[in-house]
């Protein structure tokens, strides 16, 4: 993102906040439901000063990172393998689509039965929701890459392992990155919903629910904004990393 784009983004955020301020301070909406930006920031400052928001952040973030990491560790090799052996993939395609069609959060009750209400069940649901995304994207990355490079490597005498580790993985990298980005967003969504469903003591999802129960709309607004910002930052950082790693795609 260049300087001009950053300036444009800041301007649009400033306009959004100003609009929010205008609507709230003119009492166009019941102040019960829409606090002013100042009230929200004040509440935010309190939460930051008391370090409460950080504990929630760490808990939520840890669940997402564990769940998504597990999905990547398992999903990328499986996806690459399935993409490479197209015939095997044809057997699994329908099953994968079936699992992908199940809203991940629907498996949360089952996960709680198996793992209890602690961390494990939440991580398991995040894993379940993300692993199909990672598998499908990695497989598509291999399937859609030009076969010519693999052929060229074969003619040069590359072994099966060399073709895989030195050609196929690199060709699939752009699509693997798409899988990582989508599954991280999915992981944040699932993680927060599990926190809202069965309250843990900590987590941004439970904070939002608790704020609602206490009619603490500034706190609720602040939590929502924090979650939005986290998603935005994760996405931007990943794009930055992607442009670094997959330098050749940017030029093409």
């Amino acid at each position: 993102m260049g300087g001009v784009e950053i300036r444009k983004s800041i301007l649009s955020f400033a306009l959004l906040i100003f609009g929010w301020y205008a609507v709230a301070s003119l009492h166009l909406v019941n102040p019960m439901f829409l606090p002013t930006p100042f009230e929200t920031i004040q509440e935010g400052a309190r939460l930051i000063a008391e370090k409460k928001i950080f504990i929630d952040l760490i808990y939520s973030f840890r669940r997402v990172v564990y769940g998504v990491s597990l999905a990547l560790i398992m999903g990328i090799p499986v996806g690459l393998g399935l993409g490479y052996y197209e015939k095997v993939y044809q057997y699994f395609e329908c099953i994968l689509d079936f699992f992908r069609s199940i809203p991940p959060i629907l498996t949360f009750p089952l996960a709680m039965l198996i793992f209890g209400t602690g961390e494990e069940s939440r991580i398991a649901v995040i894993f379940f929701g993300c692993v199909t995304i990672v598998i499908l994207n990695s497989a598509a990355g291999v399937g859609n890459s030009p076969k010519l490079r693999v052929n060229a490597a074969k003619i040069m005498g590359a072994s099966w392992y060399q073709i895989f580790s030195r050609v196929v993985i690199f060709d699939a990298l752009p699509q693997i990155f798409v899988g990582i980005r989508v599954s991280l967003s999915m992981g944040v969504i699932i993680g927060i919903v599990t926190e809202m469903l069965v309250g843990d003591k900590y987590g941004l999802g439970s904070r939002a629910v608790n704020a609602q129960i206490a009619y603490d709309t500034p706190g609720l607004f602040f939590t929502i904004i924090i979650v939005g910002l986290i998603g935005l930052i994760i996405n931007k950082l990943l794009i930055l990393l992607e442009n670094r790693v997959i330098h050749w795609k940017k030029a093409a």
Partner: peptide, 20 residues
């Protein structure tokens, strides 16, 4: 689509040797 865009020119040329 036959060169390896993730490798430098030098590594592309040396690719066949690096397999052995």
């Amino acid at each position: 689509n036959s060169l390896f865009p993730w490798l430098t020119v030098k590594d592309n040329i040396l690719f066949p040797l690096s397999l052995k």
